[in-house]
Design a protein around this nucleic acid. Structure first.
Lengths: 188, 188
DNA sequence: CGCCCGGCGTCAGTAACTGACGTTATTGTG
DNA sequence: CACAATAACGTCAGTTACTGACGCCGGGCG
C-alpha cells in the first residue's frame, strides 16, 4: 500500500497549475513546482514523466469511457453515428471536468509546448477510437478517417460550448455533427 | 549578403536525418549532428530552434501553396470542395518530396517527440487553412471544422497512397473525400 | 518485535538550449 | 586593389529538464 503517494501527486498538479498561471510555463522550473508541493524535484519526476505531463492527467479515464461506450453501441450502426453516440455518453464527465479545464485552457493556449502535448493526447484518443472502430468491423481504410473526423467534430462541439454556453453540450454535439453532414454533402 | 548559410543548413538537415536513421533520435546529440555537418553545436541552434525542428522544414512552402490555391478557387464553391481542389494543386509538390518523406517517416513513427512536432506542424497548416476559408466568407463556426476535416481527409489520402502506390495520389484524394461524404451521409 | 518494501531524499551526471562576446570571411565601395 | 561593413561562425559560461544509483525512513505483516 502506498504511503500517501496519491496526495503528493495531486499537490504537484495543483502547484503546477498555480505556478503556470502566476508566472507562466516557461518561467517556472520543475524545482519550483516540487517546492510548492513540499517535495523534491526528483519526486516530481517519479510521478510525471516530464514537465508537460503534469498538465494532462485523467486522459486514460476518458479513453476507457469512450471506447467502452463505443463498444456498447448496437452492432450495425455506421461509424460516425456510433461515435456521436459515444461522445454523448461522455458529456457528464466533460461537464464535471469543466472547472479544471477552464483553468488550464489559457495556459495551454499561451504555451506551444503544452499545445503540442495536447495534440499528442488527442492523437492517442483517436488511435484508441480507431481500434474500437476496427473491433466493430469497420475497414482499416475507413476506421482511422472516421475516428479522426469524429473526434474533430466532438472537439469543435466542446469548443463552441465552452465559448458560448447558452446551449447544452448535447445540443452543440448534434449541431456540429449536422454541420459535418451538410458540409460533406456539398462534395460532388 | 550571407556567407554560405544555406549550404550549412542543408548539411545539418542531411546529417540529422542520417544520424537519426543510424542510431535513432534519442541516441544522437545535437553536437553529433553539428560535427557531421562540419560546424559547432551553437551553429545548429542558429539554424534550427530545437532538435526536432531540423526534421520539419519546407512547411511554409506547402502552406503558401495551399492557401494560395484555396484563394484561387472560384468564389461560391463550398468549403470542402474548395479544399479538395486546393489539395489537388499540391499533388506535384508532394510527389516530388516523396523520397525525403519516405526516409523521414520511420524515424518519426519511432520517436514520440517527433510525432508531437509533426502534429503541431499539421495544426499550423489547419490554422492557415482556417484563415483562408474565413477569407472566402466561411463562418467562424464552420471554418475551423472544415479546415480540420479537409486536412484529415488529405492526410488519409496521402497515407493510403504511400502504403499502396498502385493508384495515383489524385485518385486516392478523390476516394478519401468520397469516403468522407458517404460516411457523413450516414448521420441521420 | 523485526523484516520487508514502497516512497522519498540526496547526489552526480548528461544533454538540450541560451546569451554574450570575439573572430573570420565575404561583399560592396572608394 | 585596399578597406571598412556585416553576416555567419566559434568559444565560453550558464541554466534547466531529465536520469540513474544509492541510502533512508515509515508502515504493514508475520
Amino acid at each position: 500500500m502506498p504511503r500517501s503517494g496519491e496526495q503528493v501527486r495531486l499537490r504537484l498538479q495543483e502547484a503546477a497549475l498555480e505556478l503556470y498561471l502566476e508566472r507562466g510555463y516557461d518561467k517556472t522550473t520543475t524545482g519550483d513546482i516540487a517546492a510548492r508541493a513540499g517535495v523534491t524535484e526528483r519526486t516530481f519526476f517519479r510521478h510525471f514523466t516530464d514537465k508537460r505531463e503534469v498538465f494532462f492527467d485523467g486522459q486514460a479515464e476518458l479513453i476507457e469511457l469512450l471506447t467502452g461506450a463505443l463498444a456498447a453501441v448496437p452492432a450495425g450502426t455506421r461509424p460516425l453515428p456510433a461515435l456521436r453516440a459515444a461522445f454523448h455518453q461522455a458529456v457528464p464527465l466533460i461537464e464535471q471536468n469543466l472547472p479544471v479545464t477552464e483553468r488550464r485552457h489559457p495556459v495551454i493556449a499561451a504555451t506551444p509546448a503544452l499545445r503540442e502535448r495536447a495534440l499528442a493526447k488527442n492523437a492517442a484518443l483517436i488511435d484508441a477510437l480507431t481500434d474500437a472502430l476496427r473491433a466493430r468491423g469497420v475497414t482499416d481504410q475507413l476506421a482511422p478517417l472516421c475516428a479522426q473526423i469524429g473526434t474533430d467534430t466532438y472537439a469543435a462541439a466542446i469548443h463552441r460550448w465552452a465559448t458560448d454556453r447558452t446551449d447544452d453540450l448535447h445540443t452543440h454535439l448534434d449541431r456540429a455533427f449536422t454541420d459535418l453532414r451538410l458540409s460533406a454533402n456539398a462534395l460532388k
